[in-house]
């Protein structure tokens, strides 16, 4: 049982709290625990607020909200002990902090095993950036962008079209374009930043997602009966990554055939950890790839992944299966 973590970074006033508020308001059936800088800034409809005790604000939809207590690891450890435990954790960092350090501590294998970092998000204030291009040279700003799996461009409505285009052109030097999304688009941040784990509680969600948003993305699954060769798999993923939003699955490698590993790619960050073995894991590989519609040639993708399958013992027909949704 793991509880995924989304990290939200960005300068003071960039729009981090807005993003967190939105996730709390539309938790998509998840019991989200938000760790925030400033309670006062949490702007939840009064009818959602339930109670506040021992520094934790409970919402009617099952979400909770608390401020950072001392060190982050302690706050995390406390959250996962709550009854009932949260399904997901969102951490809002202070505007002055370098998320690289926090990402590093979240990637401690011991921590990751319980609370895996799902997505590191950095919110960029388009208006602020247009006014102060010197930010592009600010080391903290650069680190915030570099540490992000996905950047959210906020307040784009406050910049005219030409200004926005210029901004995007410069931003592209720091982050691949497909990893920069607009705060204003319709996909709920909860859906965007947490991958499709089965939420343990299906709360009736008030504002259900417009299906149209999902149509922007397509999903393909790929599987193999046989284990894959790590180096070849890395090579395939490296070549697919620029076309993917995320990928996730259980993979068995030839050098450790008895040990299925959980593979996760978000943006250009890939993690590999031991999988909690289930009845489905029989030594092969199963992946789900998500890309913007029309962006990736799925046949190419499947061919690349096929090439990573260990074919030493059996040189017969490829064992893979491809399903597209």
């Amino acid at each position: 049982m793991t509880i995924p973590v989304v990290l939200v970074a960005g300068f003071l006033g960039a729009g981090k709290t807005t993003l967190v508020n939105e996730m709390l308001r539309r938790p998509d059936g998840r019991r989200i625990a938000a760790v925030v800088n400033d309670f006062g800034a949490i702007d939840i409809d009064a009818d959602l607020l339930r109670q506040s005790s021992d520094g934790v604000v409970s919402l009617r939809n099952g979400c909770i909200c608390c401020s950072l207590q001392g060190d982050l690891m302690r706050t995390l450890a406390t959250l996962i002990r709550r009854q009932p435990p949260p399904d997901a954790i969102v951490i809002e960092t202070s505007g002055a902090s370098d998320p690289a350090e926090i990402v590093r501590s979240l990637l401690d294998p011991v921590v990751y095993a319980a609370t895996p970092l799902e997505t590191a998000v950095t919110v960029i204030d388009a208006r602020h950036l247009a006014d102060r291009p010197a930010l592009f040279d600010d080391p903290l700003w650069r680190s915030q962008v570099a540490s992000a799996d996905i950047c959210v461009l906020a307040k784009t409505d406050l910049v005219d079209e030409a200004g926005l285009a210029a901004l995007r052109a410069v931003l592209a030097r720091f982050k691949a374009q497909h990893l920069i999304v607009d705060a204003g688009d319709h996909l709920s941040p909860t859906r965007r930043f947490f991958s499709e784990n089965e939420p343990r509680v299906r709360a009736p969600s008030k504002g259900s997602m417009p299906q149209a948003a999902d149509e922007r993305f397509e999903t393909q699954s790929w599987s193999s009966e046989r284990p894959v060769v790590l180096a070849a798999f890395q090579s395939a993923v490296a070549r697919l990554a620029p076309f993917l939003l995320r990928a996730k699955g259980v993979v068995t490698f030839t050098h450790e055939p008895g040990r299925p590993m959980l593979f996760q790619l978000v943006g250009s960050r890939a993690t590999i950890v031991p999988a909690q073995t289930g009845p489905m894991d029989r030594g092969g590989a199963r992946l789900v790839l998500i890309a913007e519609r029309g962006r990736l040639d799925w046949e190419d993708a499947a061919r690349l992944l096929d090439a990573s399958v260990d074919i030493e013992p059996i040189r017969s027909a490829p064992s893979r299966r491809v399903d597209r949704h």
Binding site: K175, F253, A270, I272
Partner: peptide, 16 residues
């Protein structure tokens, strides 16, 4: 094209 670089985090030494 630095965007094509993938950062790999092996969070278990047995992974690799």
């Amino acid at each position: 094209d630095p965007g094509s670089l993938v950062l790999w985090h092996f969070l278990d030494v047995a992974a690799n």
